[in-house]
């Protein structure tokens, strides 16, 4: 038995030697290509090809539910319709409103919570766990149960607001003014812990000696925050904003469950409209053009943001 194991080991070693002898004649660049080729092929298949295909489709009248229909090249007509549509600008505005306000609130609250938790008070770990629970839930579930919380007659949200402000039954989801805020509140409730977590990582990475040096220099609490804490946490914070910004730009499930884009089109975010155009109306060419516009917007903004982030880091 031992003999057979040894001979197998020998055979494997001989094979490895033969392989390395063969490789000896291959350049380093070629070896590198051999190793990265599968990944590149995979990327081409699942990222680059669909992107190029989508770009092509955006110039056609293609409908995915009518495969037998002749595909006609229609030039930039889809883009002209999109850019000339009042509705599309409305969806983009609704998206921008959602992204900007969720970012502002989540950063303020997330950073604040991180500063509190970082004080390492008794029970800090317990409270950290409790605070993290919302982000562990499924957005579809969160959306569904918040519709009950927002219910004007039986929901607790309306009851609490009415109790303190005497507003009467508050129809958060059915009101044009309040519906955009209803989705902002839920997203903030759900994702503030994520920002808190990243900020906490930033705060924990600040060495104590910096604060000790500041103490010696008689810096007050505000100065310590402004000159030590904030600059040290800023890269983490900006990273969190990047992640959440991209996520919220393509927000879908939570809003569909909460408002279905309504009332009217008040909370119809770009991603919801894109899904409706692509998979309910089956206007594949048109929705491809919309997807490309969204991609270019996110990609462009993301790139600018990453450059700023790098500057902040350096």
């Amino acid at each position: 038995m031992a003999g057979s194991t040894r001979s197998a080991t020998n055979r494997a070693a001989a094979a490895a030697t033969r392989f390395s002898a063969k490789l000896r004649g291959v350049s380093d660049a070629s070896i590198a290509w051999i190793f990265i080729a599968p990944t590149i092929l995979l990327l081409l298949a699942i990222n680059i090809f669909p992107l190029l295909w989508t770009i092509y489709l955006s110039f056609t009248n293609f409908r995915a539910n009518q495969p037998g229909r002749p595909v006609r090249w229609i030039g930039t007509r889809n883009y002209e319709r999109l850019l000339g549509s009042e509705d599309i600008w409305g969806y983009l505005q609704a998206t921008a409103h959602f992204v900007i306000w969720t970012m502002i609130l989540q950063i303020a609250l997330g950073f604040g919570l991180a500063l509190l938790i970082n004080r390492n008070f008794r029970g800090a770990s317990f409270w950290t766990t409790i605070i993290l629970i919302p982000m562990m839930l499924s957005p579809a579930v969160v959306g569904t149960f918040w519709t009950y919380i927002y219910q004007p007659q039986t929901g607790i949200f309306s009851y609490i607001i009415d109790f303190f402000a005497g507003t009467g039954a508050l129809d958060m989801i059915g009101s044009v003014t309040l519906a955009p805020w209803s989705i902002i509140i839920v997203d903030t409730w759900m994702w503030t812990p994520y920002i808190m977590l990243l900020c906490l990582a930033g705060l924990r990475s600040i060495p104590d000696y910096l604060y000790e040096a500041a103490e010696i220099d008689r810096a007050n609490a505000l100065q310590k925050f402004w000159y030590i804490t904030l600059p040290r946490v800023l890269p983490f914070l900006m990273l969190a904003v990047l992640f959440r910004g991209i996520e919220n730009f393509k927000m879908f499930d939570l809003v569909v469950e909460l408002t279905s884009g309504g009332p009217g089109s008040t909370t119809e975010l770009a991603s919801i409209n894109l899904k409706r155009e692509a998979f309910e109306k089956w206007r594949t060419g048109y929705s491809s053009a919309f997807a490309i516009i969204l991609f270019v917007t996110i990609f462009g903004l993301g790139n600018i943001y990453v450059k700023v982030l790098n500057k902040v880091k350096s």
Partner: peptide, 20 residues
């Protein structure tokens, strides 16, 4: 293409009736 026609009507009448 009824689905496309239906969604357009959903949007237009909801915009008027519910969102005002």
């Amino acid at each position: 293409i009824y689905a496309e026609l239906l969604l357009a009507m959903q949007q237009r009448v909801h915009d008027y009736v519910v969102a005002g």
